[in-house]
């Protein structure tokens, strides 16, 4: 079957079987391999994308269900060579190590800050509860999202912990 959708601001279409998962359509048909598969039980969040403005698991949707949807993946965040503040936060605050959970984590954080521009640490932690990271212990991911939140509010982010040396 033919499915069409807007991905990162571009109208795309392609063939999919009814059983084709959206994440496979993004990765294999559209070549957008930034969205990752980390589990099969819908628990790890590595496949998180923004669908009509909400964080969803692209591994737990059929491509067919996304027909007509407006999707943003991690590849669509930066514009004109400028990183999204969340991406910048992850870079500035060492919010990633192996990077595999990072695209889903970033998409989760982007949608979180859209919904709640000034989250507390607890709200950040609860907001990324559906994204597992095995490398960072989440410490610097929280710092990265705090950084991005400050930037998006036009505030000066707190200095990095290692800058207090």
């Amino acid at each position: 079957m033919k499915v069409s959708m807007s991905v990162n601001g571009k109208q795309v279409s392609g063939d999919a079987e009814p059983r084709t998962l959206l994440v496979h359509f993004l990765r294999d048909t559209l070549g957008l391999t930034g969205t990752h598969v980390g589990c099969e039980s819908s628990y790890c969040g590595a496949c998180t994308i923004s669908l009509d403005g909400k964080a969803v698991l692209s591994c737990t949707m059929l491509a067919a269900q996304a027909d007509g949807a407006d999707i943003t993946t991690v590849e669509g965040l930066a514009s004109n060579g400028e990183l999204h503040p969340v991406q910048e936060g992850f870079w500035e605050r060492h919010g990633l190590q192996c990077g595999f959970c990072t695209p889903g984590m970033i998409m989760s954080a982007v949608t979180l800050l859209e919904e709640n521009p000034e989250p507390s640490e607890d709200e950040i932690r609860q907001g990324i509860e559906g994204n597992l990271c095995r490398c960072t212990g989440y410490h610097n991911i929280v710092r990265a999202i705090e950084y991005a939140g400050a930037k998006m509010r036009g505030e000066e982010p707190a200095p990095a912990e290692w800058e207090n040396a």
Partner: peptide, 11 residues
């Protein structure tokens, strides 16, 4: 990081 935060790392 620049590749990884933009979904352009190659696994």
């Amino acid at each position: 990081d620049p590749a990884l935060i933009q979904g352009r790392g190659r696994y």
